[in-house]
Design a protein around this nucleic acid. Structure first.
Length: 527
DNA sequence: CTGGGGACGGGGCCC
DNA sequence: CGGGCCCCGTCCCCA
């Protein structure tokens, strides 16, 4: 009996030892794996930061270019520039086409840009974001600090070249060349950088607001969905906002700790580990970097759904509030990059809604929010597919207004669906959506041959005749063939001698209206 | 050589 | 989705 007891005691001891050893080994494996995992996350975080900074540099470049482009403030000059750009396009099938080079359409730098404080403010806003971001890195990360200082230098460079409207940090340094040089450092990799940004979900709200091009999207299905104010999928553009918030909530300035500690899987034998390795504020990090991250973002998106019109504004307020260190110039009008222009128009739109309570329209927020700023096929300028909002309004919108006018001015019969931008009425919501691409710059239909993009599917189909060489319309008087009927119709005037357009000044007649206009511009100095 | 105009191609946009 | 119009740009011819 005594032997039995001794045996049991020994067995219990052996079992305990074995159990402890097993647990210890298991925990060691877990911790080792966690260390590797954490290392990988750390590396990813560093990559994200690097990419984000590249993106911010690109933003500054864009803002800078916008400012520079706005200085001439000449629509004619810009139009000529567009024409030259078109001429650069490669031709297919011997056509003397106006095909733009791949990716050219995106930035829409051909759009007339209004010379106002908006452009300058946008530039300044980008700079402020950069500075804030550098500061938010905190003192805990030496490398980050140095990068922040580098970015700050870039900011100074940009600011030095900014228009006089920007009074902050006026500098006498002739920084124009420096600015250009610092920008060109990343210009060659813009596309890749931007795409990487998407992949790593480190886009900033500034980017979202600044890069308002739209035709970056190649799949119309995506546009088909989410058109009616449906916000973008969580985890696309807004995350950086929460990242900034995260940094401030944590307060220790160690990105690595926060980014990895929240998911810290090492739980069992931490007492046997170096306590110093354990990140601090674990509960907070867990809240922000794990589930609550998505939960929070989802709540914002939900909020956007519930209140479509304020989607962007709500998010912006969040970002600004948590930023904490807001420069004196960071105000409601200048916060977050290009919001100055877009947000202004946005507010104008909201005001119009207030004055038109019966407006049945769609949220413009989708036009600004759900963008992946990079097309898979367009080049560096592609970031550009979505035209800056105010620029669009200055060109196409006015043209659209001049042509069709608003619903309030035209026949509003059965046109219950109003454009949120120009107030023009349409009979069905789909037409409104298509029309609003005039303002948003969305071009969801891309040509697989030349990467041209179009806002309407019919335009793409028509364009593809350039590549196919299809000319279904033949002249009955000669052997000429045309790809479009109106070309044939115009051509027929050659045979008929019809000249329906007469100059009101000299009486000279022309077969085409454009010829008359050119004639009047050159000879009578009229439009 | 240059400028004006014709002819034409093509994109934007509306119906 | 197709038709149609508008506009722009380019090439070419001619005075």
């Amino acid at each position: 009996m005594a032997n039995c007891m001794v045996f049991h005691t020994q067995m219990a001891s052996i079992m305990e030892v074995l159990a402890n050893a097993a647990v210890a080994e298991i925990c060691k494996l877990v911790d080792d794996d966690y260390a590797v995992f954490r290392l990988e996350i750390t590396q990813s975080q560093k990559e994200n930061r690097g990419l984000r900074r590249k993106l911010q540099l690109l933003e500054m470049k864009v803002a800078r270019e916008r400012v520079l482009a706005s200085r001439p403030s000449s629509v004619k000059i810009l139009d000529r520039h567009r024409g030259m750009a078109r001429g650069e396009g490669h031709l297919t099938g011997g056509y003397r086409s106006s095909v733009k080079p791949a990716g050219h359409n995106t930035w829409r730098d051909d759009q007339p840009i209004t010379v106002d404080e908006g452009s300058g403010t946008s530039t300044q806003n980008v700079i402020m974001l950069e500075s804030a971001d550098a500061e938010s890195a905190g003192p805990g990360v030496k490398q980050e600090r140095s990068e922040g200082e580098e970015d700050t230098q870039h900011s100074r460079d940009i600011q030095a070249g900014a228009p006089p409207v920007i009074t902050e940090e006026p500098t006498t340094v002739p920084a124009q060349p420096r600015t250009r040089r610092s920008i060109t450092e990343v210009s060659g990799t813009q596309n890749a950088v931007l795409k990487s940004e998407i992949d790593t979900k480190t886009l900033t709200v500034t980017h979202r607001l600044l890069h308002t091009g739209s035709d970056h999207r190649s799949d119309p299905e995506r546009l088909g969905r989410g058109r009616l104010g449906c916000p973008p999928a969580p985890g696309s553009d807004y995350l950086p906002v929460f990242h900034q918030r995260m940094v401030h909530c944590r307060g220790d300035g160690d990105d690595d700790a926060i980014d990895t500690g929240g998911d810290d899987p090492s739980c069992s034998y931490t007492t046997e580990m170096d306590p110093g390795n354990m990140p601090l504020g674990l509960e907070t990090q867990t809240d922000l970097s794990r589930g609550d991250w998505n939960q929070y973002s989802s709540s914002v998106y939900t909020e956007g759904c519930l209140d479509e019109k304020e989607e962007v504004i709500v998010v912006d307020e969040v970002a600004v509030k948590v930023e904490g260190v807001i420069p004196p110039t960071w105000n409601a009008d200048s916060s977050l990059g290009n919001r100055h222009s877009q947000g202004r128009d946005f507010l104008d739109y909201r005001e119009s809604l207030e004055t038109n309570p019966n407006v049945e329209t769609h949220s413009p927020s989708h036009a600004f929010s759900d963008r992946d700023p990079v097309s898979t096929s367009v080049g560096p300028s592609d970031s550009h597919a979505r035209v800056p909002f105010d620029q669009v309004l200055n060109s196409k919108d006015q043209r659209a207004k001049a042509r069709g006018g608003g619903a309030t001015s035209g026949n509003s019969k059965e046109k219950r669906f109003l454009c949120m931008f120009c107030n023009k009425g349409f009979s069905c919501s789909q037409n409104v959506e298509i029309h609003q691409r005039v303002h948003t710059g969305e071009k969801p239909y891309s040509c697989p041959q030349c990467h041209m993009r179009f806002a309407q599917s019919g335009s793409l189909k028509r364009h593809q005749r350039v590549h196919t060489g299809e000319k279904p319309y033949s002249c009955p008087q000669c052997e000429k063939r045309f790809s479009r009927q109106h070309l044939l119709k115009t051509h027929l005037k050659v045979h008929t001698g019809e000249r329906p357009y007469a100059c009101t000044h000299c009486g000279k007649r022309f077969s085409e209206r454009s010829s008359l206009r050119i004639h009047q511009q050159k000879n009578h100095s009229t439009l």
